[in-house]
Design a protein around this nucleic acid. Structure first.
Lengths: 144, 144
DNA sequence: TGAATCTCTAGTAAATCGATAGGGATTCCA
DNA sequence: TGGAATCCCTATCGATTTACTAGAGATTCA
């Protein structure tokens, strides 16, 4: 699948909003600064995430972006598919509908399933939980 | 992962050689014709497959390409990795060696594992077997 | 009103992709 | 020994995609 930079920026932006848990809107500039993402590029991405129903926004002073739904309802796969367009190997089917019936079809199907099994089952709530846990473990071992 | 056209050509070419089972070399032109691959493009790909140790070649009249090892020792993953370079999501690590320790690392690792689980376990002998079986089933149902 | 923010449309430099061109080097065979 | 047939090598090219940047417009709030 090979995630593009844009795709990773999108994931990081959503994660940033999740980790703030705030219901107050977060400014693009803040997300850009925290996640080290070029601001004008991020603008496009956030707008696209809004089109996809992942985020809400408010303009004007004290405007910004918020999550459109709880972190446990947003999966890595959903974000990635929306930003990257077609994901995984699924053969370019050009325009003709019927599959070309190649010896590799079965493999591609298995790859798709295996991939989906990971990214469509991982929510941002999962990521946040693991991340917090990891940070706390690190803190402990650092104290010792 | 999203296989490139070049990657798929490589797979098809190897499959073609496997399905011939012949120890006689097969000409580039023949593979190109059978698999509908632009010949000059295929030349580059076959040469690269040779560099990777998948194929042998002979020049001159009655020259061509042969498998460098039995079909059961060539996996889809090996061919793909050799032709496509880095496969799967594994983050572009720029040049700095240590991983950037992001909340997504674990996901990428899982994706890599899931992907590898499919493509590194599927040999061309498997593909050929499945393909033959499929063709025979089709023939039977066609007769009935 | 005006400052702060999101929003929308263009544009752009660099890289990659999917080829094509044109010989050169080997090998076989008559 | 001299082609003819084949693989081998390097270079180039047009189209597309990627990762961004520019700049002006639309909203919102104080």
């Amino acid at each position: 699948m090979d995630v593009s930079v844009k795709g990773e920026y999108a994931l990081r932006a959503v994660f940033e909003l999740c980790s703030r848990g705030s219901s107050e809107p977060t400014k693009i500039a803040d997300i850009a600064a925290r996640q080290r993402i070029p601001q004008k590029f991020l603008e496009l991405i956030l707008s696209q995430l809004k089109q996809g129903g992942f985020l809400n926004s408010r303009r004007g002073a004290s405007g910004g972006y918020t999550l459109a739904k709880p972190a446990e309802d947003i999966t890595v796969g959903a974000v990635l598919r929306h930003i990257e367009g077609r994901l995984s190997t699924a053969r370019r089917s050009d325009d003709n509908s019927r599959p070309p019936d190649s010896p590799f079809n079965e493999v591609w199907k298995q790859v798709d399933a295996a991939l989906s099994n990971v990214i469509d089952r991982t929510t941002f709530a999962d990521l946040l939980e693991r991340w917090k846990e990891k940070r706390s473990r690190r803190a402990v071992s650092f104290q010792i």
